[in-house]
Design a protein around this nucleic acid. Structure first.
Lengths: 189, 189
DNA sequence: ACCTGAACACCGTTCAAGT
DNA sequence: ACCTGAACACCGTTCAAGT
């Protein structure tokens, strides 16, 4: 069963790479099979249909992202009592300028595109974002009041900014400092 | 040339209807041609490639949307000096609950999916959002200070909320009133 | 200028057949 | 349990040929 797992993992790995290189339009079962050195029908044995492959790919990708975000958090926060505000500014910059690896951004957009027509994949995406929001709420609650409000504002904004942000009248720096002022002033509202 | 225009318009019309009925995955040049009662090759004569057809479809769709938003604005605002705050709450509700026709929401998501791999279509989308943001900035500037900030916050948030909003800890009503308080308190920041 | 039909190289899925 | 090859019905694009 080690072989089974190895081959299944290799298929996911090549799917992510192909998604990065050619996008959702270029993602083809034959290409994935070819890169893995196996037959199209053999790939179909491990993932019976394109939907099954996409869902498994999204699952793997989401896990990787969550690990990376956790690492960033521990790197930013220290014993300094002022580090929570440093971290907030850092978090805003990361979310809004999408300076997280460009690779992840690309794959995420492709997954969104695929999820529109693949309701099982869309459901997996919803589950991920719910988990992501819950984790970020816990993290923010240790540092700021109204963590649920902050998360409910920031996560959708970050996703929307990736789509239409460059068409907005204010530039990135202005928006980051605007959000910083909004969030630190939140308890007054 | 009236015939040329009629046929070109009919093709766009059927493309939008097919996009609504079957989504981007079901959008096929053969199907569009069939619904128009013409040949695949004849459709290719009017729109030389799928990209050309999609861009023309997006152009037409954006114009229709802009007209609808203008109509909503004039309907909400009147001589009552308090109507600007009524309008703000109404605008937030429309943007965040996506109560704009569900049909438009579907088509927009399909166009986003298609734009990811079609850079010419993506460019048309950017142009539309820039025009949309400029128009909304003018509109808000008559009623509130910091119109550019409001627009730079609201438009990306609305787009992102359509994607991930249902996975957030706060529900729609809480988010709408949160945004209302944030925007009316903006001048203080 | 407008329209056609045939051919091209792809695609995801199915399935009987092998080990 | 794992893997194969052939066939299926699609897809967008091209192009020589008609009016």
């Amino acid at each position: 069963m080690a072989k089974r797992d190895d081959r299944a993992r290799k298929i996911i790995e090549e799917t992510v790479l192909l998604l990065k290189e050619e996008g959702s339009e270029g993602l083809t079962l034959r290409k994935v099979a070819g890169r893995c050195g196996i037959t199209l029908s053999n790939l179909q044995y491990y993932y019976p249909g394109k939907t099954a492959l996409l869902q498994a790919t999204a699952d793997h990708f989401f896990l990787t992202c969550e690990e990376q975000i956790r690492a960033e958090r521990t790197a930013a926060l220290n014993d300094d009592p002022a580090s929570s505000h440093v971290f907030l500014k850092r978090l805003l910059t990361v979310l809004i300028t999408c300076e997280q690896d460009e690779f992840y951004n690309t794959v995420f957009r492709e997954l969104w595109a695929l999820a529109i027509r693949d309701s099982a994949l869309a459901s997996a995406m919803r589950t991920y974002y719910r988990r992501y929001a819950a984790w970020m709420t816990d993290m923010m609650a240790e540092l700021f009041p109204k963590a649920e409000a902050i998360v409910s504002l920031l996560i959708p904004y970050a996703e929307g900014y990736a789509l239409v942000g460059e068409s907005m009248p204010l530039d990135r720096e202005e928006i980051v400092s605007l959000w910083y002022r909004l969030i630190t002033a939140l308890p007054d509202g």
